[in-house]
């Protein structure tokens, strides 16, 4: 028997919004420790890694580990039926081929449930090597989304260059070039608004705008985003989900032609 209850169903909806444009379908691996999802997009350029810890849920029970393969467009339809203040309870029997989502309104005057068919997905888990990153940049998530959106108008790629002075985002296209430089802030009172750079060595890498834009769909989940970079290694874009876990995206770099 698997049962997970989240008072704030809106959080799950935000997680879904953050992954459904990258992935058509994905397996949710449920165990005693929580729910995990790891999946690559169809082009094998990016990878989504979601980790929700069991004690972040208001109720969590998982007697036997189970993998629930879901079509994310279908799952989105289910969550479109939930109210923003609803509580969600996710339930599945051991070896079941369906999962049930129950939504309860705050005062419990409305209760709805949706049963969805599960899928058998050929899932391939990738080993992600431990990396000592050259640069770790922590910045407001809304600022990152804004920069990616702005620069995407001009080119297909963004070069992210990090030195100890700051981080520079650059693009070039047919109409010209664009650069955004962010300096490290000294505003330690407001951590949420800070740009903090932890640099061992300067690094400069090129990434596809298309994917960076899809990653920023996670912006509503967290005020801050962390970008971890190292030469010749995929970029890690990490959003902490307060009290529940984290959502990480990995993006393979572009290399010189």
């Amino acid at each position: 028997m698997f049962e997970a209850r989240l008072v704030n169903s809106a959080t799950f909806k935000k997680i879904l919004d953050a992954i459904k444009d990258l992935l058509d379908q994905a397996s949710f691996d449920c165990s005693e420790s929580g729910i995990q999802l790891q999946a690559m997009d169809n082009s094998h350029v990016s990878l989504v890694s979601l980790n929700l810890k069991s004690d972040g849920f208001d109720k969590y029970r998982c007697d036997r580990s189970l993998t629930m393969g879901m079509n994310l467009a279908s799952l989105s339809k289910v969550f479109r039926c939930s109210g923003s203040d609803d509580t969600v309870t996710i339930k599945a029997q051991d070896d079941a081929d369906t999962v049930t989502f129950m939504f309860e309104s705050k005062k419990q005057e409305k209760i709805s449930d949706y049963e969805m068919k599960l899928m058998n997905l050929d899932q391939e888990h990738l080993g992600i090597p431990e990396t000592e990153f050259s640069c770790i940049i922590k910045m407001p998530s809304a600022e990152f989304a804004r920069i990616v959106r702005d620069l995407s108008q001009f080119g297909e790629s963004i070069v992210i260059s990090c030195t100890k002075e700051g981080v520079k985002f650059s693009t070039q296209g047919d109409i010209g070039t664009g650069n955004v430089k962010l300096a490290q802030t000294n505003n330690f009172d407001k951590e949420e608004e800070s740009v903090i750079i932890d640099m061992q060595e300067p690094v400069s890498l090129t990434f596809a705008c298309q994917y960076l834009n899809l990653f920023t769909k996670a912006t509503p989940l967290s005020n801050q985003v962390t970008l971890s970079m190292c030469d010749n290694v995929p970029l890690v874009v990490e959003y902490q989900i307060p009290d529940l876990g984290h959502l990480c995206y990995y993006l393979a770099p572009k290399i010189e032609e």
């Binding site: 690559m40 350029v45 990738l126 080993g127 090597p129 090129t206 995929p234 393979a252 290399i255």
Partner: peptide, 14 residues
């Protein structure tokens, strides 16, 4: 600008 690499060049199946 640049050629897109595959994630499979970096991460191997478990």
């Amino acid at each position: 600008a640049g050629n897109q690499t595959s994630l499979k060049n970096f991460f191997k199946p478990k």
